[in-house]
Design a protein around this nucleic acid. Sequence first.
DNA 1: GCCGTTTTCGGCCCGACTGTTTTCAGTCG
Length: 572
Amino acid sequence: MVTVNKKIIIKTLEEIALHMELLGENPFKVGAFRKAAGVLEQDPRSLAEMDNILSLKGIGKGTGSVITDLLEKGESELLKELQEQVPDGLIPLLKIPGLGGKKIAKLHSELGIDSADSLRAACEAGEVSKLAGFGKKTEEKILAELETFGQRPDKLPHWQLEPVVRMIESVLNAIPEVDRHMVTGSYRRTAEMSSDLDFIIVTKEPQRVNEALAGSLPVIGTDASGEAKLSVTVDSDEPVDVDFRFVTEQQFASAIHHFTGSKDHNVRMRQIAKERGEKISEYGVEQEDGSVLTFDSEESFFSHFDLPYFPPTVRKDGTELDRADELKNLIRPEDIRSDLHMHTVWSDGAESIREMAEACRELGYSHMVITDHSRYLRVANGLTPERLRDQIREVREADDEMDGITILCGTEMDILPDATLDFDDELLSELDFVIASIHSNFSQPQEKIMERLHAAISNPHVDMIAHPTGRIIGRRDGYAPDVAQLIEWAAEYGKILELNANPYRLDLAEEWLMLAAEKGVPIAINTDAHSVGQLDYMETGVRYAQRAWLNRDMIVNTWTLDRFLSHLGRER
DNA sequence: GCCGTTTTCGGCCCGACTGTTTTCAGTCG
């Protein structure tokens, strides 16, 4: 029998919701199972640490008995019963746009549809269009969707959407009838992955803008087109769904708040409004007398409800509204005064030490660390001990020459596959800051990976572990370390863990950052820049850190140079 | 199914668009 963990419970609850949806169940009942799954997912504790799982808000008799079933018997009676009523093949059909639980239930009961294949056959035979509530257009649309069924990813990583956002913004900037625009949705919340892009557009002529957009964007499909919105699929590396909403200047603040979400955040806000006899919509706040209040900014919108401004990144499951007093300590981009991980032409970077230093000074940093790769990483022209000593001399010279910023000597040293380090202790002791990281043999068993990480983190000269899991969002999982253990070690040995701000990485992930915070492990947000331009990744890193509610005092790069060095136990 | 110092019953956020309808259900976000 499989050991039941939190993930299995979450998945089971979600499966139950899906099956119920296909049985045409009451949407609120379906939602209750989804909500229970969400409550567990949001809770940072592991199953073992949750002694009172059944008393969590959102988990009641029904969802609780599913959990009890799973813990006691390893499976859910309810899910088994549902699976007998609903063929497995129906579940994926929910992903077809335009098909929801009720329509699929009808296809199943009236036509015996039980899979994508039988649905295709029924469409081709013209049976679907004969059903009440269905028609010729629906049938054609289903057939077209089945063509590409399962080929498109559900969500795209933030880094992949970024160039699409830029492209769309430049199109919007070129349309004269567009007065103002903003990208919202989960993208604005710096979610790792988003299923679509949402733009709010202020215009007095929505129809003209609608036509201009449809004419200028590489549109490969239109889902909806009206006075208030345009929904299209835009061609890019992957097709991207994009929604445009047209609003007036007065509605703008309410609209960006509404479409930035999250959905759960909005639900909480609306409940608060309702208790006061008000009603929130994307157009404003309706008063009891029917008049609608609008706002000149999101700040004044929140303030209307006696709330401080919650940045988009913390708008998640609604519980953020209970954490208003933590906002003042939340890390913000302007708190950052250093970048501790970057590369130069000495290894695989594009710019010189001085060019990187000038760029960091421009950003207003007080100090920075040059951390080129070590010799093991041949593909990146990693530094031999001799070259590193040469580099130290050049860094010291540059530091002496330059005013306004302190340049420190460091390395991003490889942790080798055999759990040894690429440089010896003597050389490491000559550096101001030592990063250790894994770039090779990702597929080793977890014990070996952990042995490598332990060798690094327990070495007294090593200060930080960089991109601790090696993941690339949406591409690869990395080397799957036991992150909880790594965090324990970091706490034990007093070491720093990195939040790598490169949008491809964002490593450590949110859930681990929260655990690290709980254990008091300091975090460094670093760009790992390989060029001057990449130093700008810092903002994404900080926004991502906000999602984990990191406060500025635990972020190493907010510290003064003196505090940083004294933490490292180094003097210069 | 879940929840509740206004409630143990009756709500549960709210609106746009489409397709199939002659006034609205279903889907989506």
